[in-house]
Amino acid sequence: MIKLEDVSKIYKGEHIALRDATVEIEKGEFVFLVGSSGSGKSTFLRLLNRAEIADKGVIYVAGKDIGSLPSYRVPYLRRNIGTVFQDFKLLPNKTVYENVAFALEAIGRPKSAIREAVPQILDLVGLGRKDGSYPHELSGGEQQRVSIARAFINRPLILLADEPTGNLDPATSVGIMKLLDRINRTGTTVVMATHDRGIVDTMRRRVIELDRGRIVRDQARGVYE
């Protein structure tokens, strides 16, 4: 599903964010990216949906070399990759329903399809009754559920999560992880960057550890350290 061959990313010609990374992630896997701040976790994720372009090496997503994708094709790549962030990135002037619907409007889906899909996905993430609320009226956990709903509404092949529990208390984080696990079990590959030791140690999934841009550990059913 995802394959990196000797991938390096260097910012401003000096800071090496990722160094000769070679790794393969199978379809349906759940992978934790761990490492201290600045170790290259976010860069790793940003390379996968072509928010960044690798300076060296080749990245395959679903068998396609995404580095050679012309820029007008990039949106179509992103339709197959959902993304979730620590800060949710919800639009404050739109309701829960509108925030999720926006993901479908933006790719030109017809209104009828949107009216059908949005309530379904809101039920899935457990926010069926909050569709008219605005983000500032929701708790952090609820906001993250909205952002997951938005990321998953297209049933992407891959879900990228950059510290999705970084702003949440432990109890709320558990709920979010259950949701991501459920999404993973539908066959979606999940790659999640995290600092949350408890979560990694509890879930016992594949762990890839980065240190100053290098992959220093790649362990099936691993722990945080």
């Binding site: 949906n49 820029s71 007008y72 949106p75 179509y76 790549l77 992103r78 339709r79 197959n80 993304t83 990135k89 639009l91 404050p92 926006f102 993901a103 933006a106 790719i107 030109g108 938005r150 990321a151 297209n154």
Partner: peptide, 14 residues
């Protein structure tokens, strides 16, 4: 810019 960022994220065409 927030809307634009989200649009890019979900794969809105250029």
């Amino acid at each position: 810019r927030r809307e634009i960022e989200v649009m890019r994220l979900v794969g809105a065409s250029n």
